[in-house]
């Protein structure tokens, strides 16, 4: 699925939010088979950095480059992003929501399989409005898997999850990276990824 020659390079990146400068001089390279854990206090710029990696905002200075085998790629080609609050819309059921995103990313797995993987079997008909925070995180994980991009950008993937949910996320991320993928994870909780080469990027004021 993923390519080990995948690289995310942040070259002297400066970011701001709403005109307020957050962080500057970011220089880091992450390759396939690696994880980068972003930590730091609230409001220091973790989400902004993820958004910039996803190409949803442009850095004030510097460049963010994705490449595969040395060839530059656009973020949508290689990355998928699990936001802190997902794109799910009240009014749809869990099954309809996930099936839509599977269809959009041409996912080959069945809806039942995806639900089973994230421990939501039998919940197809639960309305999105009735999902708990933890169930939304599981849905988010299923969406990441369905998108089948080599890079995962995750914003607080452990928030609201129970112990089994956390284990599920950590196992899934570890498997993804083990298969040559890459993950950038903003999280207040430590993400245990046994056997995975991981670095921690601390943003501090």
């Amino acid at each position: 699925m993923a390519d080990t020659s995948l690289t995310l390079a942040l070259l002297d990146v400066a970011l701001s939010r709403g005109g307020q400068p957050l962080v500057g001089g970011l220089d880091v390279t992450v390759g396939g088979g690696e994880a980068l854990w972003l930590t730091g206090a609230n409001g220091v710029g973790k989400t902004t950095l993820l958004l910039a990696c996803a190409g949803l905002i442009t850095p004030d200075e510097g460049r963010i480059e994705w490449s595969v085998d040395g060839a530059l790629r656009s973020p949508p080609e290689v990355a998928s992003y699990a936001a802190h609050r997902g794109p799910e819309r009240d009014g749809l059921s869990l099954g309809e929501e996930l099936a839509f995103w599977q269809r959009v990313s041409s996912d080959t797995a069945s809806l039942g399989d995806r639900l089973a993987t994230v421990g939501l079997t039998g919940r197809e008909n639960t309305p999105v409005a009735g999902l708990s925070a933890g169930q939304r995180r599981r849905l988010s994980l299923a969406r990441l898997m369905a998108a089948s991009r080599p890079a995962w950008l995750m914003d607080e993937p452990l928030a609201g999850l129970d112990a089994r949910g956390r284990a599920l996320v950590e196992r899934s991320v570890a498997e993804h990276i083990g298969a040559g993928g890459l993950a950038v994870i903003a999280s207040h909780h430590p993400v245990a990824l046994p056997g995975i080469s991981a670095r921690r990027l601390v943003l501090s004021a």
């Binding site: 949803l56 949508p76 609050r85 794109p87 998108a147």
Partner: peptide
């Protein structure tokens, strides 16, 4: 869809 982030996700889905 803008508020929920669905438009951004559709963009990322290509």
């Amino acid at each position: 869809d803008q508020a929920s982030g669905a438009l951004a996700q559709l963009h990322l889905a290509g």
